[in-house]
């Protein structure tokens, strides 16, 4: 029974991490890269406007950081809940 409670808590924590990550995933690509581009056209990164840069380069960098941060966070969660391999 204890195991079940522990794995439910682990799953809830996992879902929380996933939801936060998905919000960032959405914001950097669909948000900054597409939807908000017209509104933020005044902000520049070098020779490009912010939305253009996120659409062509920036979103990819954020995706990278996001996956490695997720992997690190999950390794920590695995240990805390005693479910690591």
């Amino acid at each position: 029974m204890a195991d079940k409670t522990s794995s439910n808590a682990y799953w809830a924590a996992n879902i929380r991490v996933i939801v936060i990550s998905m919000v960032i995933w959405f914001a950097c690509s669909f948000g900054l890269g597409i939807i908000l581009r017209p509104a933020l056209s005044g902000i520049h990164i070098g020779g490009a406007d912010l939305g253009f840069w996120f659409a062509q380069n920036g979103a990819i960098y954020v995706f990278l950081v996001l996956i490695f941060a997720y992997a690190a966070k999950m390794n920590k969660l695995d240990k805390e809940h005693g479910v690591e391999e």
């Binding site: 996933i18 990550s21 998905m22 995933w25 690509s29 890269g33 253009f52 659409a55 062509q56 380069n57 979103a59 990819i60 995706f63 996001l66 996956i67 997720y70 992997a71």
Partner: peptide, 21 residues
């Protein structure tokens, strides 16, 4: 141009979904 950024974001953003989901 900018409109075809769909390939850049689309073909990389899928890996976030793969890793997380």
């Amino acid at each position: 141009g900018y409109n075809n950024s769909v390939f850049l974001m689309g073909w990389t953003g899928g890996y976030v979904l793969l890793a997380l989901l």
